[in-house]
Simulated assay, not measured.
Amino acid sequence: MSLTLAAAQTIISTALAHARSRSAKPLAVVVLDAGGHPVAFAREDGASLFRHDIARAKAMGALGMGDDTRVLAERAKGNPVFFQSVSVAVGGNIAFSPGGVLIREAGTIIGAVGISGDTGDCDEDCALAGLRAAGFNQEIPA
């Protein structure tokens, strides 16, 4: 199982189209494979300087911790010292805000998408729209 460039481009183009339909702020979107290597990236005109870095940190954090960043953010509320230590241990390569979503194929993690630019809820919604368009089922097998 692997994440193709075509699938990554579908995720990005759909996420950005969904963002425009919501009148979201300009976004940066990155798609990483399971090893954390970039497959595709886009930054909308007007997206601020650090948006790429934040989007990548969301995707890397999801991959590294094995869960979407919405879940990680909730966990961090209950154990802030541990998650601060994680952030230090990984050189800040993690972000605790919704918008980092794992990509699964047949229940196996094959990558992650990270989006930054609007609220975490909006970023995550755009990521999920992109994943659906690319045919990825986000249900976690029991």
Rank of each mutant, 00 (worst) to 15 (best):
G35S: 05
A89C: 00
D53T: 15
S13W: 05
G100L: 03
I103L: 12
D123G: 01
G35P: 01
G92Q: 14
Q84T: 04
R20V: 06
R20D: 13
A129V: 01
L27K: 08
V90A: 09
T69R: 03
S85D: 12
N137G: 07
F50N: 08
C126I: 00
S13L: 09
G111Q: 10
S85L: 10
A95N: 03
K77Y: 00
L27C: 13
L16N: 01
S87F: 04
L102T: 00
G130T: 01
G78Y: 01
C126S: 10
R43K: 10
H18Y: 13
I54V: 03
A55S: 03
A134Q: 12
G107H: 13
R22G: 13
T119E: 07
L32G: 10
G66M: 13
A73Q: 01
V39W: 11
I140P: 12
L3F: 07
P38R: 03
R22V: 02
G130L: 04
K77N: 04
H37K: 10
P98A: 12
A8K: 11
I109Q: 11
D33R: 06
F41R: 15
I54Y: 14
A76I: 07
S23R: 12
V88D: 15
L128G: 02
G130M: 07
L5W: 01
S116Q: 08
V30E: 13
G46F: 05
V86P: 06
F41S: 15
L72R: 07
A112Y: 06
I12N: 11
L32S: 05
Q138V: 07
A28N: 04
D53N: 15
D67F: 14
T69E: 02
I115W: 09
G99C: 02
I54L: 13
T14R: 04
V31Y: 15
E105F: 07
A73Y: 01
A57M: 06
S97P: 13
L16P: 10
G36C: 12
L128W: 10
P98L: 11
G66W: 09
A15F: 09
Q138I: 01
V101W: 04
I54C: 11
S23W: 14
A134R: 06
G100Q: 07
R22K: 15
L63R: 11
N93Q: 14
G36E: 10
M65F: 10
